[in-house]
Design a protein around this nucleic acid. Structure first.
Lengths: 266, 266
DNA sequence: TTAATAGTGTCTGTCAGACACTATGTG
DNA sequence: CACATAGTGTCTGACAGACACTATTAA
């Protein structure tokens, strides 16, 4: 590798337009923390890797950016979710970029990490895999194009290859943080739900009980759900609850908490 | 380019370890929004590009990741600040990654954007450039290794090459947002300062007056500055103010606003 | 003493947290 | 009518915003 004066953009050279090869190019990938709610637990999707490195191990869905197909990073994440996890159009947002020399043994690599939320009833169950089957042999692994998928409660995930555990933890922190002041968790709900169910989801994510009155006040201040005319009748011996759905004309604007150091509103 | 089944990680191929060449690699760069306070204005550092594309135009400090020297993205940003803007150890944080096919005419590119804050008295003035000199000729441009630097008030920046204006705006938004609930702006202050000066900085960033009492309450709740024994005597006809400095044992923990949907604290 | 800003005391309206109460379905 | 959860009324303590007041220096 050529040793040069260090800026990497020296004027004297009339290099090729792409300026390739001055430094080895990092590997660019996109990883996605895909979260859902299953059996009253927040779960992450893990895929069994089909190739080295870490072949056979369970990791976050991820893959290279396909410069010929993906418009941008979000599109790449969306494609990966669709092709590898069979998930169609979840709430999807960039999380943070993890880029260093050490995170992947193949060399300097960049992971533009994203996180996604989806209702469990919207997950295709094509390649999903339940239970703890023993890892398949090499022959079995390559027998199928689609990697196997499983949903694992996040507290049970103690180790992951590469820096995927860090990515997962960062995503969960972000979701918790946003849950405190936004309606993010509605993206985990099925098409219709009751306010009590929504509250249970908030409590689950935040890890503690929330006051019913305060919760309902907040939710209708946020103005993101609306009642439907039908009623819910589930468990027999109780008053049925009003069913709600997410409002259509929902501005994607998540109110940033702007209440701490106050500008005088004159 | 080989057209393949789309996952980008097919098991059948025993490819090289690096798996290069399956898709053209994106260009990976780091850009930094470097902010300071100058003449009572929030200013961003702009550098005059020494080469194509956009040669001669003013842009955010940026450059490629040097996989041989940079440990990670933050280190790359730090190196760029030091070598290109002559800035030593500012507050530096990852902002967001901008990655798409269209942001740079050279092709699919990734910019891991960062933002940095520094006191204006800590800026080296080696290559800084004041006033609005006409752009230099090509010969002049390549006469010097260091690109020219200027500080421009952010409201005056109306256009920038590539998507740098978007990056700048995103950074300013982030700074404003964090200013509302954290002590981020102390990173713009000189070594010693008065509370009134600090308040003026907050007001400047947020764009409106702040109540003195509330401000001081908040600041000492945050517990990030401490009084020094010296006094400030500047402007003659008034009571001198206590000088403060940033506390040493400052935990980098920026309190996330967690007050909106409350967990019952039992 | 005046000018001018530093720094403090304190009132008050708002609102989150808490909790009790009423409502409404099934069996 | 009893049960169990849905849904509402309302009290209260904390606190942010507001604002007035005192403190301290130089001229």
């Amino acid at each position: 590798m050529t040793k040069q004066k260090s800026t990497g953009e020296l004027p004297a050279q009339s290099a090729s337009i792409l300026m390739l090869g001055r430094h080895p190019h990092p590997i660019v990938t996109v990883d996605v923390v895909l979260l859902t709610l299953k059996d009253q637990q927040l779960c992450a999707a893990l895929l069994q890797r089909l190739q080295e490195p870490a072949r056979g191990e369970w990791t976050l869905p991820g893959g290279w950016v396909h410069t010929d197909k993906d418009e941008d990073a979000l599109a790449a994440a969306s494609r990966i979710l669709k092709t590898k996890a069979g998930v169609e159009s979840p709430y999807l947002e960039q999380l943070q970029t993890f880029a260093s020399r050490h995170r992947d043994r193949r060399g300097w690599s960049v992971s533009i990490a994203h996180y996604a939320l989806i209702a469990h009833d919207q997950v295709a169950t094509l390649n999903s895999h339940e239970g703890s089957a023993p890892s398949r042999s090499s022959a079995e692994l390559i027998a199928n194009d689609l990697p196997r998928l499983k949903w694992v409660p996040i507290e049970e995930i103690r180790t992951l290859p590469f820096d995927h555990l860090t990515i997962l933890r960062t995503a969960v922190d972000r979701v918790q943080s946003k849950t405190r002041y936004s309606s993010l968790p509605v993206n985990l709900m099925p098409k219709t739900f009751t306010l009590s169910e929504l509250q249970r989801v908030y409590e689950l994510i935040l890890g503690g009980p929330i006051d019913k009155r305060g919760f309902r006040r907040r939710i209708d201040e946020l103005d993101i759900v609306e009642p439907i005319k039908g009623q819910l009748a589930i468990s027999g011996v109780q008053r049925p609850a009003q069913l709600y759905r997410v409002k259509r004309k929902r501005t994607q604007q998540l109110a940033t908490a702007d209440s701490n150091i106050g500008i005088k509103t004159e």
